[in-house]
């Protein structure tokens, strides 16, 4: 019986983070190559969460600090707005893409070079931590789908 409990616990321990990742999907993750290491970079992705959740923060070893930015258009003027947490309504896709929301990667260790990848960890209120691999595309890239075409 004790053995069975141990197995159940072990299976549960292995399965639960996987389940968490199942309920939240992070895809189309990419960053634009940067020219100067002293300048911030931008990363983009799409998140789809089965249940209502919230993105609390993002970390990556390549940057000292990551900020979630929305772009507010006030007439003709674009203002970047720092948002603390990103609301994820159940079953809705939230897309961060050029000209709109983006993750601003600050204090880069080095410039982001096209063709490389780096890990990025997203912390969700309910789903916990999800680590994704981010592909660095060229400075002219508009998104990973375009690159694949």
């Amino acid at each position: 019986m004790r053995k069975l409990i141990a197995i159940v616990v072990a299976v549960w321990a292995i399965a639960s983070p996987a389940l968490a990742e199942e309920s939240i999907r992070v895809f189309d993750t990419w960053a634009r190559a940067t020219i100067l290491a002293s300048r911030p970079g931008a990363a983009y992705l799409t998140i789809e969460s089965a249940a209502e959740d919230r993105l609390l923060g993002v970390t990556t070893p390549v940057a000292g600090h990551v900020m979630i930015h929305a772009v507010e258009k006030d007439g003709d003027v674009s203002r970047m707005k720092h948002i603390e947490t990103l609301e994820l309504p159940a079953g809705e896709r939230v897309t961060l893409a050029p000209g709109g929301m983006h993750l601003m990667l600050m204090a880069l260790q080095d410039k982001l070079s096209e063709g490389t990848t780096f890990p990025m960890t997203l912390s969700f209120e309910t789903a916990g931590e999800v680590t994704v691999e981010v592909s660095v595309l060229g400075i002219a890239a508009q998104g990973p789908r375009e690159a694949a075409e």
């Binding site: 634009r32 020219i35 100067l36 300048r39 911030p40 970079g41 931008a42 930015h69 772009v71 674009s78 970047m80 050029p98 000209g99 983006h102 601003m104 990667l105 400075i139 002219a140 890239a141 508009q142």
Partner: peptide, 17 residues
Amino acid sequence: FTHCPDVCPTTLAYIAN
């Protein structure tokens, strides 16, 4: 400006294109 991570590189890459 060069600290602009999104709109500026997107627009300059567009001009280059």
